[in-house]
């Protein structure tokens, strides 16, 4: 419990410095926010056309459901990037030896390294989810509650996936491609109704690439609340993050022993 408190304290600390740092280059913010709004609008346009072509439901979802999973994906992605923007750079940090800086400090290595950077543009992603929710779901309390819970869980799961993928760098050398692909997968599986997939992919979405836990289960809970399902969701998220954390530290031992494959000649 004390450890968790320390971790939260550290995250808060980095968050403040990150914000100050981001303000230093706010000029590009408007352009990034514009680009983000534009690509999100493209997506809404796509669904509007798709639903107007056939009407009714696609993969068991109606237009509002699709907007919910899209809003949640966007906000969870935004939240994880605001706090843990280094999740994309873990491989670089390992390979260039930037990791040493964090090893020399008396705080948790993984948390420090994840937190020590923010991506300003992703504030837009976070806000966009809220705007979309306000437009499509108004003041439906339960839906909003699950949306907020989903942001926390989804943000943590996305980060955990990225950490797991990049940790392979400790074992096989440059794993940035695995990291990119893992995130591409997770986002792609999050933004469409789960009903469009079958057997194997569905199983993946409930395990290795836990897209269902990020968006589809929160939606299910928002439609009809089941305490048991909520518990499963929380337990799964905690377990997944725990495994990712442990896996990283296991890999870190390789770094400490100096037996990395990276040849820096």
């Amino acid at each position: 419990m004390k450890k968790l408190k320390n971790i939260l304290y550290l995250i808060g600390l980095y968050f403040k410095v990150n914000l100050a740092s981001a303000m230093e280059y706010r000029s590009s913010f408007l352009m990034q926010a514009f680009g983000m709004a534009l690509s999100n609008a493209t997506f809404v346009f796509y669904w509007w056309i798709a639903f107007s072509q056939i009407g009714g439901r696609i993969g068991g979802y109606d237009f509002k459901d699709v907007m919910f999973i899209w809003a949640l994906t966007s906000s969870a992605f935004g939240a994880s990037n605001i706090l843990f923007a280094n999740m994309f750079r873990i491989t670089t940090i390992i390979v260039t030896g930037e990791l040493d800086t964090f090893l020399l400090q008396p705080k948790d290595v993984l948390i420090s390294l994840l937190c020590s950077r923010t991506a300003l543009s992703t504030w837009g992603d976070l806000l966009y989810g809220f705007v979309l929710m306000a437009l499509t779901h108004g003041n439906d309390g339960m839906v909003w509650l699950m949306f907020l819970l989903g942001i926390v869980i989804g943000g943590l799961l996305m980060t955990a996936i990225s950490v797991t993928a990049h940790t392979f760098t400790f074992y096989f050398g440059d794993a940035s491609l695995i990291g990119d692909i893992a995130l591409e997968f997770i986002i792609n599986f999050c933004i469409y109704p789960e009903g469009i997939y079958r057997g194997f992919v569905r199983a993946m979405m409930l395990s290795v690439i836990p897209a269902s836990f990020i968006v589809h289960i929160p939606l299910k809970l928002a439609r009809s609340f089941q305490p048991g399902l909520l518990l499963i969701l929380l337990a799964f998220a905690a377990l997944y993050c725990f495994i990712a954390y442990k896996f990283f530290y296991h890999g870190l031992k390789k770094y400490e022993s100096g037996n990395l494959i990276i040849t820096r000649m």
Binding site: L10, L13, Y14, V17, A20, S21, E24, Y25, G97, E98, D100, T101, L104, Q105, P106, K107, S112
Partner: peptide, 27 residues
């Protein structure tokens, strides 16, 4: 520790902000 090219300072911030963060990191 001062390790050659690996900086403890935040590139976009004045050092005083990094000092504050380091102060908190070192309790």
């Amino acid at each position: 520790t001062v390790f050659g090219q690996k900086s403890q300072l935040w590139f976009h911030l004045p050092p005083v902000d990094s000092f504050a963060l380091l102060g908190a990191i070192y309790d």
